[in-house]
């Protein structure tokens, strides 16, 4: 028998008995960031493809929510900070090797951009909106002229933000379960899936819904492939990573992972979407909320599982 114990009673809060330095705040931050990334990506992309009229929910309506999502996400991040009065320190340095720094700066760029885009489309939600001040009206006019450039920026920054939500984890070598480059694409896919689901919910055009249901199905398939790929990658790797994957393959988080993320968060909504596409009457809110829930659970579980996994020495 091998027995490995700490005999000096170490009980650092958040570290012992298992690492829980990150609670719900970071997963929420990443979920909302991923969702926002998905929305921005689709809005930018379909604007550039000239489908603004055809897919109004994607291009005009949903992105109005993005600043709110980002603000909530940032607030969650803020809640996670334990030394809050020093928050501003994030913006006195640019640290290229730090994903946290990266994220902070990406959000720094993306938030104003998304706010402008939202402002331009605020009348989708409040048709009688009036900017009250002339200079605001002038600004609106000014930005309307740069919609194309903004769409490009949104598409690209959306992708970066989506990938970043995964990289924040995968940059940590020390947590074997996070130590895989697949997390970036996986979280991007999950963000896109969540984004397309939300567009489906917001859209009242049948055609648009169908398109996003199809997109979602493809993204779910890709996401599923990434998950399998990730687990197989661990199995083929070092002992610490084999042990790490065990958390989802028979270990403590197996049931929640497969039930909440894969079955309820991917397979069931996919089936419902297929049925919907085959003209069964399914209330759209069901698959959409399942997808959003699954997308959050993916981050929540990966966050916790990563903190459970460790180097043995």
């Amino acid at each position: 028998m091998r027995e490995e114990i700490i005999i000096s009673g170490r009980m650092n809060p958040g570290i012992d008995p298992v690492l829980t330095a990150w609670g719900w705040e970071i997963p929420v931050y990443l979920f909302l960031g991923g969702l926002a990334a998905g929305l921005l990506f689709f809005a930018g992309l379909y604007y550039l493809l000239g489908k603004a009229k055809k897919y109004p929910a994607a291009v005009r309506k949903a992105p109005v929510l993005v600043p709110v999502l980002l603000a909530l996400g940032l607030f969650a991040l803020f809640l996670d900070l334990h030394h809050k009065p020093y928050f501003w320190r994030l913006y006195t340095t640019i640290k290229l090797q730090s994903p946290m720094s990266w994220g902070a700066w990406t959000l720094m760029l993306i938030t104003p951009l998304s706010m402008i885009w939202a402002a331009l489309h605020i009348r989708e939600w409040f048709p009688n909106w009036d900017w009250k001040f002339q200079w605001l009206r002038d600004l609106e006019k000014f930005f309307s002229a740069y919609k194309k450039q903004m769409a490009w920026a949104m598409t690209i920054l959306g992708l970066i933000l989506g990938i970043y939500t995964g990289i924040l984890f995968s940059a940590f070598n020390a947590r074997p379960l996070w130590n895989t480059s697949i997390l970036g694409p996986l979280f991007l896919a999950s963000g896109l899936s969540a984004g397309s689901a939300l567009i489906m919910l917001i859209s009242n055009k049948h055609k648009e819904r169908r398109v996003f249901a199809q997109i979602d199905l493809i993204v779910i398939a890709v996401e599923f492939f990434f998950i399998i790929h990730m687990l197989m990658g661990f199995q083929a790797s070092t002992q610490v990573q084999i042990d790490a994957a065990q958390i989802f393959l028979g270990g403590p988080l197996t049931a929640p992972f497969w039930i909440f993320v894969v079955i309820l968060g991917m397979i069931v909504p996919a089936v419902l979407e297929i049925m919907e596409l085959r003209h069964f009457k399914i209330p759209v809110v069901i698959p959409v909320s399942l997808i959003l829930f699954g997308s959050f659970m993916l981050r929540w579980l990966i966050s916790n599982a990563g903190q459970l996994s460790r180097y043995l020495y």
């Binding site: 809060p13 570290i15 330095a21 990150w22 996670d80 020093y86 994030l90 020390a174 947590r175 180097y311």
Partner: peptide, 21 residues
């Protein structure tokens, strides 16, 4: 101390769990 925002990234990054808040 007064540059740290308490984000916890370094805690996650240490394979030895040597840090705490």
């Amino acid at each position: 101390k007064n540059e740290c925002i308490g984000c916890g990234a370094c805690i996650q990054s240490c394979p030895y769990d040597a840090r705490y808040t």
